[in-house]
Every structure is written in structure tokens, then in C-alpha cells.
Write a protein that binds this DNA or RNA. Structure first.
Length: 238
DNA sequence: GCGACAG
DNA sequence: ATCTTGTCGC
């Protein structure tokens, strides 16, 4: 990990916690770091929104992951800046440990941004995770930045009741009797989105911001643009 | 013990 | 996540 990236880490975050030697250690790191998640609205006024995503190369022995971070203005939601980075994944994809695979690459891309966004939408779960530490919470805590988890499929939990078909319909995401997030029908006839707090934002705040970022597609603009940018970065790196 | 399982 | 154009349905 380069010095520029190290300097971005929030105080008290051991660098070695980003790439644990095994899953047991990774699990302990998640449990310890999850205690730092702030589930209330504790973020600055939003002037710029961020979106992050990863693109993987199929059958790549090197396990390269392409990370992209895009910055959009608010309320225009136009991309005003973006950065990308390549990194070799420290571990394969294991459900529940996505952060250890993708966060390092995201940090490298984040370091290249001249101006940082005030709130970031992440492709994946926030606290809607077995140990309350999905990738959105992971990235948020490590950088101590406001973040929201926007996943396209569930990891744990299920909607409290059948989700309405109309765009805008929501249902609490429940797991073991507790609410971890919100299931949102972002678009008609599309599978729902699974939203949850990442860091420094409330459940209600997370839902509000995602809905405000919808522009006719299933995914909110920040995440949608980040996905396009990540793919472009990978395809450009022939 | 048997499934489920973000990207 | 990734391989990929057209095509069926609302």
C-alpha cells in the first residue's frame, strides 16, 4: 500500500486490517471495525455525491480488480470528476468478506481524486451484513466518510412484507428480528434494491438520498455511473 | 447436517 | 463479477 493511500486512513485503523492473513482474522477485524459505524446523520451538507464500483476480469490469473470512483454535482447529478485504479485482489470473492477484496483498490482510486465527495454510494451492502460490516460500511469507516450501501441482491434478511410493485415502494429489511435496512422498488418491473447505512448516515437518510439520485434507471446515478466507469477502465487497460 | 451466500 | 445480440413482454 502506497503512502498516499495510507495517509487517507482514519486514525486508529491498522493498515494490516485491510489485508488479513486468513478469514478468521478478517472476521475479527470486521467485528472490531463495525463498532465504529455511525448510524446517524453526521455528514456535511451535500454538494457533491460519490459513486464507487469494481469491475473484475474474467479468468484473470492475477486476479486484477478495476476500481472506479466518480463524483457528481448535486442536484445536477452530472459527473464532474472520476478516478480509477487497478489492484490485485488479496483474496477470492467470499460472501461476507467483499470489503477485503475490493476496498484496497477503491482506496487507490479515491487517493487520485482532487476533490472528495460529501457522501458516497457504494455498490454492495452497508450494515445489512452478518456482522454489520458490509463493503459500504467498510469503506466508510476506513476513510471515515459518509456512505450508503446500495446492493442489487440480498445477503442476509428479507423484506418484512411483500414489496409493492409501484416505484418508490419500500419495506423494512429484517434479519433475526432486527431491521438492517430497506428494500426499495427503484423502478417499475425491476428487481428491488437493498439499502442500508454505510457510515455517518441514518437509515432514513440513506433511503432519501438514494431516491433523490434516481433518474429513470434501476440504479441511482452515482452507482450507475461508477459501474460504467469501472467497466471502461478495465476495457481500456488491454 | 443441509442450504444460503453482496460483487 | 464475467461471457453477449437479439428478443419477448410490459
Amino acid at each position: 500500500m502506497d503512502p498516499a493511500t495510507l495517509a487517507l486512513l482514519a486514525p486508529g485503523i491498522p493498515p494490516d486490517w485491510l489485508d488479513p492473513p486468513d478469514l478468521a482474522t478478517a472476521r475479527e477485524a470486521q467485528i472490531a471495525l463495525s463498532a465504529r459505524v455511525i448510524r446517524e446523520d453526521a455528514h456535511p451538507p451535500v454538494r457533491r455525491l460519490g459513486g464507487v464500483d469494481i469491475s473484475n476480469t474474467r479468468f484473470d490469473p492475477e486476479g486484477r480488480v478495476y476500481a472506479a470512483v466518480v463524483v457528481l454535482d448535486w442536484p445536477g447529478l452530472t459527473v464532474v470528476a472520476q478516478a480509477s485504479a487497478v489492484a490485485r485482489a488479496a483474496m477470492p470473492y467470499v460472501p461476507g468478506y467483499l470489503g477485503f477484496r475490493e476496498v484496497p483498490a477503491l482506496l487507490a482510486a479515491w487517493a487520485k481524486l482532487p476533490e472528495k465527495p460529501d457522501l458516497v454510494l457504494v455498490d454492495g451492502h452497508g450494515i445489512a451484513h452478518p456482522r454489520g460490516f458490509g463493503i459500504a460500511a467498510h469503506l466508510g469507516v476506513v476513510l471515515d466518510i459518509p456512505s450508503i450501501g446500495v446492493a442489487k441482491s440480498p445477503l442476509v434478511g428479507r423484506p418484512e412484507a411483500p414489496l409493492g410493485e409501484e416505484p418508490g415502494a419500500t419495506q423494512p429489511l429484517l434479519w433475526k428480528g432486527r431491521r438492517l435496512g430497506t428494500v426499495l422498488r427503484s423502478k417499475r418491473r425491476s428487481n428491488p434494491l437493498y439499502l442500508s447505512t454505510g457510515h455517518r448516515i441514518s437509515e432514513a437518510g440513506a433511503v432519501d438520498w438514494v431516491q433523490r439520485c434516481l433518474r429513470g434507471y434501476r440504479l441511482p446515478e452515482p452507482t450507475r455511473q461508477a459501474h460504467l466507469a469501472a467497466n471502461a477502465a478495465r476495457r481500456a487497460a488491454v
